[in-house]
C-alpha cells in the first residue's frame, strides 16, 4: 500500500497547527482593511497580545504564577501618562523611562517574592497588583486619583504622529508581531530551555547547574517589561488613564486569554487576545443571554481544547485516532 494518505494527513496536520494563528492574523488584516468599529476591538486585542505574551513567558515557559502583572502595566501606563501629559516629554522617551522604572520595580519586588512557590507566590503577586491600584488612587498629586489623567498625546516621533485609527492599528500590529517574535526567540534558546527546565522540575534543573532563582527573576522582569510596553501603548491609544483601567479585571481578562489561546505556546497570546476580544462582539445578538453564552463558550473551549486554541491540532488528532484506531498502529 502507498502511504500517500498518511502524508496528506500529516501535511494537513501541519497546516492545522498554524491555522488558529493565521486566522487571528487574518482578523487583524481585515480590521486594518475595514477601518470601522472593529479597529478599536482588534487594537485592544493587540495591546493585550503583548501583555499576555509577557505573562506567557513567566507562566507558560517558566511555569510560575503571577496575579500582579497589572502592577507593571500600571507603572508603564502612568509613567507615560504623567511624563507626556504633565511634563511634556516625547512619548518614546517617556516609554523608555517607564520600562526602566518597571524593570527596577520588578527586580525589587521579585527578588524577595520569588522565593515563594505555587499558591504562596500567587497570593504575594496578587497583593502587588492591589497595592499598585491603591497607590494610583491615593497618590493624587501625581495620578490625579480616581479622576485619572487625560490629554495624553498620540504616539509619535518628532513631528510625525500616529493620528489615524488605521495607522495606530498598523503600529500596534507591528509591536505585537515583534513581541511574539521575541517570545519565540527566547523560548528557542538556552534561556528558554532553562525556563522550561525549572518549570518541569526545579530539582532536576538545579542538578544540571541551572540557577533557578536567577532565571525565575529574569523571566519575571521580562514579563514585567512586556506589561509596561502594553500599558504605555494603551494610554497613548486611549489618551486617558484611571485606576479602574489597571485593576484586577485586567488580570482576569489576561488569564482567560492565556488559557483560551494556549498557555506555553508562542502564538497562544495572540489567538487568545483576538478571540476573547471579539467574543463579546460576536455574541451581542444574544442580548440578555450574552454573559451566559460568553461563559458557556469559555467552558466549552477549555473542556474540548484544554491546551488552548493554539493546540487545536492535538484535539483533531485525538478525534481522528479514536475514529480510526486501525490506521494508527505504532510502527
Amino acid at each position: 500500500m502507498t502511504n500517500s494518505p498518511a502524508t496528506i494527513s500529516s501535511k494537513l496536520m501541519a497546516a492545522l497547527r498554524h491555522a488558529p494563528a493565521i486566522a487571528a492574523a487574518g482578523m487583524v488584516a481585515y480590521a486594518i482593511a475595514d477601518g470601522g468599529y472593529i479597529v478599536t476591538v482588534v487594537g485592544f486585542g493587540l495591546i493585550y497580545t503583548i501583555f499576555v505574551a509577557g505573562l506567557n513567558i513567566f507562566m507558560g515557559y517558566a511555569g510560575q504564577t503571577s496575579f500582579g502583572q497589572n502592577a507593571f502595566a500600571a507603572i508603564g501606563a502612568y509613567a507615560s501618562a504623567v511624563l507626556t501629559a504633565t511634563y511634556g516629554w516625547p512619548p518614546l522617551l517617556a516609554a523608555l523611562a517607564g520600562i526602566v522604572a518597571t524593570a527596577i520595580c520588578a527586580f525589587v519586588i521579585g527578588y524577595p517574592t520569588l522565593r515563594l512557590k505555587g499558591h504562596y507566590l500567587a497570593m504575594a503577586t496578587l497583593a502587588i497588583g492591589l497595592i499598585i491600584y491603591e497607590v494610583a488612587v491615593q497618590w493624587q498629586s501625581v495620578t490625579n486619583g480616581y479622576m485619572g489623567i487625560s490629554g495624553i498625546p498620540a504616539l509619535g516621533i518628532g513631528h510625525y504622529e500616529l493620528l489615524s485609527d488605521r495607522a495606530q492599528l498598523i503600529f500596534l500590529a507591528i509591536m505585537a508581531v515583534l513581541s511574539l517574535a521575541a517570545s519565540w526567540l527566547l523560548r528557542h534558546s538556552r534561556f528558554g530551555r532553562a525556563l522550561v527546565a525549572l518549570s518541569g522540575s526545579e530539582d532536576a534543573a538545579r542538578a544540571l547547574g541551572i540557577n533557578v532563582r536567577q532565571y525565575k527573576l529574569t523571566a519575571f522582569i521580562i514579563s514585567a517589561i512586556y506589561a509596561s510596553i502594553s500599558g504605555t501603548l494603551f494610554v497613548h491609544i486611549v489618551g486617558f488613564i484611571s485606576p479602574e483601567m489597571i485593576g484586577m479585571n485586567m488580570v482576569i481578562l489576561a488569564f482567560t486569554m492565556l488559557y483560551v489561546g494556549g498557555i506555553g505556546t508562542t502564538t497562544g497570546p495572540l489567538i487568545g487576545a483576538i478571540v476573547i476580544g471579539l467574543l463579546p462582539e460576536s455574541i451581542r445578538s444574544f442580548k440578555d443571554y450574552q454573559d451566559l453564552v460568553y461563559g458557556a463558550a469559555l467552558i466549552l473551549i477549555l473542556i474540548y481544547a484544554p491546551g488552548g486554541i493554539a493546540s487545536l491540532d492535538q484535539v483533531v488528532k485525538k478525534l481522528l485516532r479514536t475514529k480510526a484506531p486501525a490506521k494508527e498502529v505504532a510502527p
Binding site: 526567540l185 527566547l186 528557542h188 534558546s189 538556552r190 534561556f191 528558554g192 530551555r193 532553562a194 522550561v196 527546565a197 518549570s199 518541569g200 522540575s201 530539582d203 532536576a204 534543573a205 542538578a207 544540571l208 547547574g209 541551572i210 529574569t218 521580562i222 506555553g264
Partner: peptide, 27 residues
Amino acid sequence: QLFQNQSVLENVMIGRHVRTKAGVIGA
C-alpha cells in the same frame, strides 16, 4: 525527573546549560 512535556532531544539540550553561555540578549 525528566522534563516530561519536552522532546527527548530538548531534554538533553537542557543538559548542555552549564557548558554554554548565551543569555537573553544573545537569544
